[in-house]
Design a protein around this nucleic acid. Structure first.
Lengths: 158, 158
DNA sequence: TATTGTTATACTCTATAACTATA
DNA sequence: TATAGTTATAGAGTATAACAATA
């Protein structure tokens, strides 16, 4: 795509759609007494046996200074815990507590259902197409950011 | 789409893509010394002769209490101004100043170019498809929110 | 009475930089 | 010297509710 004049519509649509979607998602997360970043941390940790602090920051795009605060609040709520790494004295492993895991197991499917309402009129093919589009866009963004974040699920343990 | 088990991947992808995209967009907006909500207000006002406070809030999804603060900061920067409505004594019309309009005319195309880099590898058909997908998703979100926001550009005046 | 917009409060996120302790 | 994480700071967005002025 070379000519900027041809895509202002896509871009407004991109911004507005992202915004509207996040706003919609946030409205549900709020009912769990979580903020979007907090929820993001929960679902990122969900299904793993814990992730290093740094990895968590990379996946959620939350910078380290901010992440400490988010994690503190989740710790205060009893949803996550810090465990010192055995191999690196500087590193912390962040993992869900029992309560956090329970919340994840309950809240995540609920969230899926809530978001899933958006797709009531979508056929499986429509969804597959949308997903492929998003993956492609995601890759384009990652590349452009230059960060080269891998974002594959290989790092998921457990 | 009835079975929630079939779409966790789409949803993670949706969240992550939105997040990554907004983060990417924000990195550019920051160079203009604007925040994303501030930029949103600018581009929403751009190309209009002003919008009522309330309309502005509906379009940007910023609630009224918050919007006052955002507008104050933009007013401090000399980019927008408040004009009392002639037909409704309670209503304020928000419009770009000369400086705001100049910024819009310069910054918006720049932003388009910046974002456009994401689509270097996209064919015009790819873009059309993506756009259609986004419009559909946007409509789904709007419907689900129940707000029934129209979001058509008919309200643009000038 | 209902609506428009402002004000006030309290909290969260954000970027940034200085700091510590480990490597 | 470099890295992992914390702390400190200042600014900005957020939800919410109470409020003034107007319709």
């Amino acid at each position: 795509m070379k000519n900027p004049d041809t895509f202002p519509t896509v871009l407004r649509e991109l911004l507005r759609t992202h915004q509207a979607f996040l706003s919609y998602a946030a409205s549900h997360v709020q009912k769990l007494n979580l903020t979007l970043p907090q929820f993001d941390v929960i679902i990122t940790l969900g299904g793993t046996s814990g992730l290093p602090y740094k990895t968590l920051g990379e996946k959620t795009l939350i910078t380290k200074g901010t992440l400490t605060g988010v994690i503190n609040r989740l710790e205060d709520k009893g949803l996550i815990q810090r465990v010192a790494s055995k191999t690196d004295g500087r590193s912390q492993i962040i993992r869900l507590t029992e309560a956090g895991n329970a919340l994840f197991k309950c809240a995540f499917p609920e969230h899926l259902t809530f978001i899933g309402r958006l797709f009531d009129d979508y056929s499986p093919e429509d969804i597959a197409t949308l997903e492929a589009d998003l993956v492609r866009l995601h890759k384009a963004v990652s590349t452009a950011r230059g960060a080269g974040e891998t974002l594959n699920d290989d790092e998921y343990e457990e």
